[in-house]
Simulated assay, not measured.
Amino acid sequence: MTILQTIIVQKQQEVDSLLQKKQPTFKTTKQPIPFKQRVSKARDLQIIAEIKRASPSKGDIHTDVNPVEQAKQYALHGAAAISVLTDASFFKGSMQDLADVANAVDLPVLCKDFIIHPVQIDQAKAAGASIILLIVAALSKQQLKHLYHYAIDHHLEVICEVHNLNELQTALELNPEMIGINNRNLKTFAVSMQTTEKLAKHLNKEEVLFISESGIHTRNDAYAASKSGAEALLVGETLMRSKNISKTFQQLQVMKQKRRKHHAR
């Protein structure tokens, strides 16, 4: 099995368990400005700054992080949103992390998980998420459509994450507001920054905001993403390992560049 398949098997077990028990309640009252609105108005490439303790490919990254303190640092240095990895089994996160962060900052908070069932969306919203991620590679077309509309109906923003052209075409059928191009192949966890550049050429709709995700470490990476037309970056490991968060933000917040139109030949 691929890493993604292994994760989805585990998620199915978690969903079965969630459906059988009463959901914990979280106190969240904040209603931040929508992420897409924030990014669209900005002159510079915006950053979704991620809280990630560990990953299947990198092992432990920063297991003893204080999510609230980390989120406050991110907010202070100009993050447009905070992403919280809530998966426990593979990334050592939790919904409590998300709830704590959502209460601590006035920014949109993304629930980063492998969502396969509406109960996970309910849980994310209850914990204070204002954005969810739907991974096209993890879902059938029918599941994707159902979960996408379920989230929109519950007043959540949705990032549809893709890694190849087939997935991008599937996502675009939904007429989504936001596409996340993941430079990491979730089947092998190998990373190629050229993924953003290759797929961006097929994103002709200017109203679709697109985010480059994974493998972003340097100013050159940020420039390359911006040149492809990305308006935001999702950055996890680089920020989690950073000894100077302010400097890391400064390196990555380059000017946005107008997306070029690619006409079919």
Rank of each mutant, 00 (worst) to 15 (best):
Y148H: 15
T63N: 06
E14P: 03
I7C: 07
F210E: 02
V162H: 09
K261I: 06
K187P: 00
N103H: 04
N220Y: 05
L233E: 09
I152Q: 14
E207G: 02
H117M: 06
P176Y: 08
A127G: 03
T6C: 09
G229E: 08
Q73F: 00
K27N: 15
A230N: 12
Q257D: 06
L45W: 00
V109L: 02
P32M: 07
D221H: 14
Q31E: 13
D153F: 04
K201N: 05
A138Q: 04
Q5R: 11
Q194Y: 11
V65D: 07
V109A: 04
S212W: 06
A138V: 05
D153G: 15
S89M: 03
A71L: 10
V101W: 02
K261Y: 11
Q142R: 14
I8S: 08
Q96L: 05
V65Q: 04
A222C: 13
T170V: 12
E206F: 04
L134N: 05
D44I: 00
A42Y: 03
V136C: 12
A124R: 04
T6I: 11
R219M: 12
L168V: 10
R260G: 12
L199E: 14
E207Y: 12
K30G: 07
L156T: 09
K27M: 10
A79F: 14
K72V: 07
F249S: 08
L19R: 15
L147N: 08
P176D: 06
I181K: 04
A129V: 03
K198M: 14
N66I: 11
V162Y: 15
I47M: 06
F114S: 01
S40V: 05
L98Q: 00
G78T: 06
V101E: 01
R219P: 00
Q10F: 05
T29I: 13
I179W: 09
A151G: 10
H146G: 01
L19T: 01
Q12S: 10
A264C: 10
A225N: 12
I245G: 05
L156Q: 13
Q120S: 03
L134P: 05
V109R: 01
L252W: 11
S246M: 07
Q73W: 01
A151I: 12
E206S: 15
A102L: 08
V65S: 09
L98N: 01
E177D: 15
F114I: 02
S192R: 13
K58N: 09
Q253Y: 01
K261C: 04
N66G: 08
E167R: 07
F189G: 08
A171R: 07
K256I: 05
L199R: 12
A88P: 00
M193S: 14
I115W: 00
Q143F: 06
H155V: 02
K112L: 13
L110D: 00
V254Q: 01
Q13M: 10
A232W: 06
Q96S: 04
S228C: 14
L174V: 06
N175D: 13
Q123L: 14
A138D: 08
H149L: 07
T25V: 11
H202A: 15
T29D: 12
T218R: 13
